[in-house]
Structures are given as C-alpha cells and as structure tokens.
C-alpha cells in the first residue's frame, strides 16, 4: 500500500480515536460543546456506553467503554508503526483467533460473574485485539488497492 494511503488511514483512525475524548477537549474550545451530544449519539452506535465501564479522568468520561478504547488505541498504535515500517505479510488466521481469545474470555468470565468488571483488563484485552486486528485490515486494504490497480 502506498505511504499516502497509510497516512490517510492513520489520520482517519486518529480522528476517530480523538473523538472518543471530545469531552476533554471542550476546555480548549467551548464551541465544541455543540457537537458533544451528537458525538455521544454517534459513538453509541458502536458501544453500549455503560457508565461504569467508561474511562473517567478528572470527572470527565470517554464516549466508549474501556474495551472499545483499547481496541481503537490498538488500531491506531499499529497503524502508526506501519507508517514507519512498511510490511505486508500474509497473516495466518490463528493470530487473530489468539489475539481475540483474552478479550472473549474476559467478556464471558465477567458476564458469568467469575470476577467483577475490570477496566484495566478490558482495556488491555481490547488493545491486544485491536493491535492484531489492524494487520488484517491493512492486508485487506492492501489487497483491495492491488486489485483496483489491475
């Protein structure tokens, strides 16, 4: 994939990830307050926004839960690495399965009340899944651009 596409992809992910923290940016520009309810509604499409699962900092919450924040940070983090090191290796499915196992296990175990919900565990397992998930997304996009060029 061309570097310019990688940069565009990184910026899309960056904007999406920054949007999660829009509540925190209101202090920088108060006009952002007009967008807050719309953004909250926007992110509700992709997250349950359960209040006790949101990341809180200085009495302000993120728009998505700890797990989703982890997933998006993972995607952003790996996309940043791909800006520096260009690789397009074919990925085995087992890596995606392995990376999703901790997240799925956490969802099942805390849903069955084996242990209480932990934002740290949710965030970490999401981060792992997002980081590995990006490799598949990147490969898919790479393949798409190759096919379009043909």
């Amino acid at each position: 994939m061309r570097r310019s596409y990688s940069i565009i992809l990184f910026f899309i992910l960056f904007i999406w990830f920054a949007g999660i923290f829009a509540n925190f940016f209101v202090k920088l520009d108060e006009n952002l307050l007009y967008a807050i309810p719309f953004l909250k509604k926007n992110y509700s499409l992709v997250c349950h926004q359960d209040e006790h699962k949101l990341i809180s900092f200085a009495s302000t919450n993120t728009f998505v839960c700890a797990r989703c924040t982890g997933i998006y940070l993972g995607l952003l983090f790996t996309s940043a690495i791909f800006l520096l090191f260009k690789t397009a290796k074919k990925m085995e499915l087992k890596f995606l399965i392995l990376a999703s196992m901790p997240m799925i296990s956490d969802v099942i175990l805390h849903s069955l009340n084996f242990y209480p919900y932990s934002k740290t565990i949710a965030f970490t397992t999401g981060l792992l899944f997002g980081s590995v998930g990006f490799l598949y997304l990147y490969n898919g996009l790479n393949q798409l651009f190759i096919e379009i060029k043909r």
Partner: peptide, 12 residues
C-alpha cells in the same frame, strides 16, 4: 472493515 477482514478469514 468487516468485509475485508472477513474475506481473509474465509479465504484462510
């Protein structure tokens, strides 16, 4: 995103 990742899973 789901389509592109899903295709790799099915192709695998």
């Amino acid at each position: 995103a789901g389509g592109l990742i899903g295709a790799q899973i099915l192709n695998n």
